[in-house]
Design a protein around this nucleic acid. Structure first.
Lengths: 145, 145
DNA sequence: GTACATCTTAAAGTGGACTTTAAGTCAATG
DNA sequence: CATTGACTTAAAGTCCACTTTAAGATGTAC
């Protein structure tokens, strides 16, 4: 059973748009050690599909709240081999804990935003009980602060 | 039926810690026009419970993704009276739309973070199918990218 | 063979949201 | 009545994550 691997490579511009970043940002990430590019005969960066997967993974981590510095730490540990798996796991779990806390807060913020939108809409359509104040409206809904 | 209103006032330091900000941040918000403080006989800022409610409300809006500039716009419209309610409503609805889009993205990021944590844990306890690659693991779970 | 897009580097600049500094005022306490 | 701590202002500084600039090299299209 023979497997044909597509051997596609990308310039920094192609690569950048494939992962949704700018070329300067890719260079910046490389300077920070988050990725390393191969080079062609004239020192131009060459990227592969594996690099795409890697950057997309980094962006997922970043999207959960990890800073560039956190990512650097992760990448450093990764380069050190399997004995740093506990470190990486702890970092990811802390990230998750922070994320979940933020998540809860943000849901409360959304609730207030929704309440305010509904309050304005009631006010606009004249459905407001005698121009009820927002604070009283919230109290009536059982939403604090 | 007589109502006793507690007439408590706060210095900037007390106020700041009550709303979870620093005194310089309160001054910064005042400079930006997000709030205005009363002053005592020696020009020191004086805040009330109403101000606390107001700042907390602003922080809820801020927590849904509104920038200081968005808040300034909101406050400006608010000061112009009820004819700007449609403007404010539109601003809040746009904020909500942006928020919901971000929310969905971030949930996907969390999914990948969770998958990676579980993958590491499987790897640690030796429960990994022959050191299955993360990409294959994701594919098996039906999680893209 | 020349124009043009795209790449290369190092270094400086940007935006947002504060934070810090410096120099001074004021009220209360010992 | 001097020290202390909390306040006042304006202006400069900080942090993060990029972005922009400048000056030059290279490969491709006509």
């Amino acid at each position: 059973m023979q497997t044909l691997k597509k051997r596609t490579t990308y310039s920094i511009g192609e690569f950048a748009s494939l992962v949704g970043l700018s070329a300067p940002t890719i260079r910046y990430y490389e300077r920070e050690g988050l990725l390393k590019a191969h080079r062609d005969s004239s020192e131009r960066r060459v990227f592969t599909d594996v690099d795409i997967k890697w950057v997309k993974f980094l962006l997922h981590l970043k999207g959960t709240g990890m800073s560039i510095n956190d990512l650097k730490q992760y990448v450093t540990w990764r380069a050190m081999g399997d004995e740093t798996i506990p470190n990486r796991l702890a970092l990811l779990k802390n990230t998750k804990t922070d994320f979940m806390n933020q998540y809860r807060e943000v849901q409360h913020h959304l609730q207030i935003l929704n309440d305010k939108i509904n309050w304005y809409e009631a006010k606009e359509t004249g459905n407001n009980q005698d121009s009820e104040a927002f604070a009283d409206y919230l109290k009536r809904l059982g939403h604090t602060e």
